Amino acid sequence: MVMPVHDVNPTRRTPWVTYALLAANFVVFLAFTPGVIGSLTGGSSLADLCHLQAFLDRYAVVPQELIHHRMPNLVPTGATGVGPQGPGCVVDRPGYEKSPELSVLTAMFLHGGWLHLLGNMLFLWIFGNNVADRMGHVRFLLFYLVCGYAAAYGFAVLNAGSGEPLIGASGAVAGVLGAYLVLYPRARVWVLVPFLIFLPLRLPAWIVLGMWFVLQAVYSSGQGVTDAGTVAYLAHVFGFVAGMLIAWPLRPGTPPPPEPRGILFGRRARPDW
């Protein structure tokens, strides 16, 4: 899998909404997600785990809640206790009212760890500014949220009996990638390719994002991965397709990206490249 680091596609306006989304994701992760400090120091405890489970149960998407609108009778409270099987998290009747539909929104800003957060934010940083530039601030924000909802509902419909929490900006970010592929397929993207060392290459966006989508589709079938049950690859597929469909009407009026010039594969390209 290649890792994008930069695209050669300047914008006409400052992508304030993209910046705001990046900031919101970091603020929620650092200031509100239980156990983050412990993960930084390596000192996560059972109490941190119980608080995190209670937090996710309240604010994450749970497919069976979203589709059947059936709330569990017992949920983690965030407290720890000792039961017949040893120390564990205490469960009790929920002391709050949860809206499954609203949980789709809150779940878009929750992440399970640093790699999860940084991976999503890297893709949003690289590709979100151009899509926002083409759509405009308000339309881009609505587009981002719609793709997140499409990803969550698509995954939930096909996993209606699942009680596992679904979190992350991945579905919405996948929508951004789908829109970028439709709007700027020929834009050049600098990527790092792992081959003994990380080799920098500049590839067309249709190769980078097309490869990403194919991998998500393959992984969603359970092929080629051992953690398909913990990563909602199918949500990525739904978000990507939603982004492509929404962006398609904007394609005819989208100005093409600039012709690549300058350094290419470590050497200076010809002026007419």
Rank of each mutant, 00 (worst) to 15 (best):
G88M: 08
S39N: 13
M244Q: 11
P258R: 05
V193F: 14
V146L: 15
F140C: 09
V17D: 03
V237M: 06
I126A: 06
G86A: 11
P256E: 12
F155R: 02
L66N: 01
H51F: 00
C147F: 01
L115G: 15
V61R: 00
V8W: 10
A205L: 02
W16D: 12
A150Q: 05
P252Y: 07
V28F: 12
A107P: 02
G119F: 06
F195M: 12
A247Q: 05
L177E: 10
W212H: 10
A151W: 03
R270C: 05
Y144K: 04
T18W: 01
G178Q: 04
P271Y: 06
Y184R: 01
V189P: 03
G38M: 05
Q223H: 10
V82S: 15
L22Q: 11
A132D: 08
N120Q: 13
R188Y: 14
V61H: 04
P204Y: 04
A174S: 15
H137L: 13
R134V: 08
Y149M: 12
R139L: 12
M244D: 02
G43Y: 07
S39R: 12
F123Y: 13
V104N: 00
N129S: 15
Y153W: 15
L22A: 08
G113E: 13
A31Q: 10
M108L: 15
H111L: 00
Y219T: 09
G38W: 02
P194E: 13
Y59P: 06
L250N: 07
G222T: 06
P76Y: 10
L196H: 11
G35Y: 07
C50D: 02
V138D: 12
F238Q: 02
Y153S: 05
V62P: 04
L181I: 01
A151Q: 07
L40F: 15
G42V: 01
L215R: 05
A235H: 01
G243N: 04
N120S: 13
A232G: 13
G88A: 06
G171T: 06
N159E: 12
G86E: 01
H111W: 00
G78L: 10
A24F: 11
A60T: 03
R139A: 15
F213K: 01
C147W: 03
V157D: 03
Y184I: 06
V231M: 07
G243K: 05
V27W: 08
A242T: 08
Y96D: 03
F155I: 00
E259T: 09
L201F: 11
W114S: 13
R12A: 11
I126H: 01
S162T: 10
M135R: 08
L234I: 07
